[in-house]
């Protein structure tokens, strides 16, 4: 007779196998294909495609955009999570919903909104032109679009955790004479540091990979406003498959490194908690 809590062998082995198979087909296979295609014609071709000036410019631009957007969203995300979870104010629910807008709106639309606002024909277009400020088809536009699209990552990772942790420790800190800033630095932030790192890394992965919104505001000027995903598209459309896959592989690699870093950090945080039990 089987124990009530024991699943049938089919359930115990069948489900995990199915899940692994799905993951392999949907996630690993495309990734493997990218790397195989990139290296199909040998290392030299792949390296040459990456070392080409336009490709290098795209890599540099992608890293630059990420280097600006990620810190901005880290600070913005912490501030939003802190405001929402540790304070009460009118309109709090609305703010929580707003944080999710970038997730629920297609990135293409986000890009279009920025064109509408800052483009030559946009609301602020004439004003910006008079002052010779270029936002659309330039770095500021790329950063704006990326910041918008990746804003929720940090906030969304922090909010559930901070909500669960409550305000008790902050209140205790206040009764012990700590200022708001001291409480934030010594109590709130250390309590969420691992979640924060995870959120930052996710935000970074997405910032480097963002296509839709960036595509709209970029203008696709080779060597100037093309980020890596856009560069891949151009190469692909021009039937330069080896180059397209080589740059894709590099982009995928950056994402994988980020993911690996996140996994290592999570392992580290688990170990610390485990050793305390």
């Amino acid at each position: 007779m089987r124990h009530a809590a024991t699943d049938s062998p089919l359930m115990r082995w069948g489900l995990p196998v199915l899940a692994l198979a799905l993951a392999a087909v949907l996630l690993l296979l495309p990734l493997a294909a990218v790397f195989t295609e990139a290296l199909r014609r040998g290392w030299e071709v792949a390296v040459a495609a990456i070392a080409e000036p336009d490709a290098l410019a795209a890599i540099r631009l992608t890293l630059l955009v990420a280097a600006i957007s990620v810190p901005v969203n880290t600070i913005g995300g912490i501030a939003a999570a802190w405001a929402v979870t540790k304070h009460d104010f009118p309109g709090k629910r609305v703010l929580v919903t707003w944080i999710e807008i970038p997730f629920s709106v297609s990135p293409v639309i986000s890009g279009l909104v920025f064109v509408l606002l800052f483009g030559a024909q946009g609301y602020f277009g004439p004003w910006l032109r008079e002052r010779d400020i270029q936002i659309i088809f330039a770095l500021p536009g790329l950063v704006l679009a990326t910041v918008f699209v990746t804003f929720p990552f940090v906030a969304r990772t922090l909010i559930p955790l901070m909500q669960e942790q409550g305000r008790d420790e902050e209140e205790a800190a206040a009764t012990l004479g700590a200022s708001g800033w001291q409480t934030f630095l010594r109590v709130t932030l250390p309590n969420v540091k691992w979640a924060l790192l995870a959120g930052v890394l996710l935000c970074n992965a997405r910032a480097m990979g963002e296509f839709g919104a960036v595509s709209v505001v970029s203008g696709h000027i080779r060597g100037q406003t093309n980020t890596m995903p856009l560069h891949v598209e151009i190469l692909y459309n021009e039937y330069m498959f080896a180059g397209a896959f080589a740059v894709s592989a590099l982009l995928a690699l950056l994402g994988l490194v980020t993911l690996a870093a996140k996994a290592v950090l999570e392992r580290l945080s688990d170990r610390r908690l485990g050793s305390k039990a």
Partner: peptide
């Protein structure tokens, strides 16, 4: 609270 200098033990202790 931070300017009162009153000692408080909260319900669930709220240790850091």
């Amino acid at each position: 609270a931070r300017e009162r200098g009153v000692g408080v033990v909260l319900q669930h202790y709220a240790l850091f």
